[in-house]
Design a protein around this nucleic acid. Sequence first.
DNA 1: GATATTAGTGGGTCGGGACCCACTATAGGG
DNA 2: CCCTATAGTGGGTCCCGACCCACTAATATC
Lengths: 173, 173
Amino acid sequence: MASENPPTASALPEPEKPSPDLPGFELPPTLLDLSTYLLSRVGKTARARLAERLAERGLRLWDMAVLASLVDFGPQAQRDLVRRLGLDPSDLAKVADQLAAAGYVERARDRADRRRVSVSITDAGRALLAELDGQARAVQDEVLAPLDAGERQVLQSLLLRVHRGTGERRTGP
Amino acid sequence: MASENPPTASALPEPEKPSPDLPGFELPPTLLDLSTYLLSRVGKTARARLAERLAERGLRLWDMAVLASLVDFGPQAQRDLVRRLGLDPSDLAKVADQLAAAGYVERARDRADRRRVSVSITDAGRALLAELDGQARAVQDEVLAPLDAGERQVLQSLLLRVHRGTGERRTGP
DNA sequence: GATATTAGTGGGTCGGGACCCACTATAGGG
DNA sequence: CCCTATAGTGGGTCCCGACCCACTAATATC
């Protein structure tokens, strides 16, 4: 917890600006010096803004995740997508449905094991993902605006390590 | 977007471990080198784990935020809490209700302006917040396990700057 | 072949968060 | 005084994301 009333800005150079929504309404330092809290809050912002862009196209984060997985790893059975992305099989079915209906992916039964449905991305899907990736980077520029290129690299690398460390208890997209 | 199939680990020293849930199931590099994505994902993990701890006590993140605000800034009218924390007045009323019922805060009408209800924290509330803060730090140690103390400082400071930069479009606790 | 197991699907539930409206009580300005 | 704005409250709604169960089809095991 931060020391009582005087809003100490923890390990920070300068408070820079009074900052938040309303003038003179800073968030509690007790929260602000929990990286946990900042992570959660900033992460939520990032998520929300990205989701917002996707929503304009009627897509959700999972759609993008699935497309990315297909581009990066090639055609896969749904079970593989499920394991890789950690979402519910039932939910994936719905996502795949939607993507297939829109022509971004194709599904075909695996001839070796006809229980499996192999999903592959179409050209339209590739094009879509490219656009989405662009949008994601645009959002990133917004969110990371206060950081210079070097700092963004550092952040990226720290986050990646943190990510790799987390037990991955089946959390979101 | 990351280059096609070979799962390039972007601007990172070493992939360290194969890492995720199931053996041989890495997440798509296309996503992993979006800081936006990592932020969202890691943030979600942090949030979830913290919320989990709070839930054991029947609390939600907002409860903690309110307590923190009261400790850091002293007794305030609900309207101040609303503005500071950016939550709906109606929702705050419910949170305050619950906290008051549990004896963590007290409410009293402001004598200067009897429309206002001034909320103040009790000793029990202070004690609770201290505990919650401890739990939050425990979660933090879990989540940030891969980072050493110096790196955590860097992360904290970067996140704080990013946070300050975000327009704060009335997002979560 | 009978049985268990795996892949996919459809149809739900559940809880949380954000939001909104109608209503009361008080304050303040003309 | 009357009228508008503000503070708080008590109802809701809506949209998610996560999860679960029941069921079919195909395969694997013995």
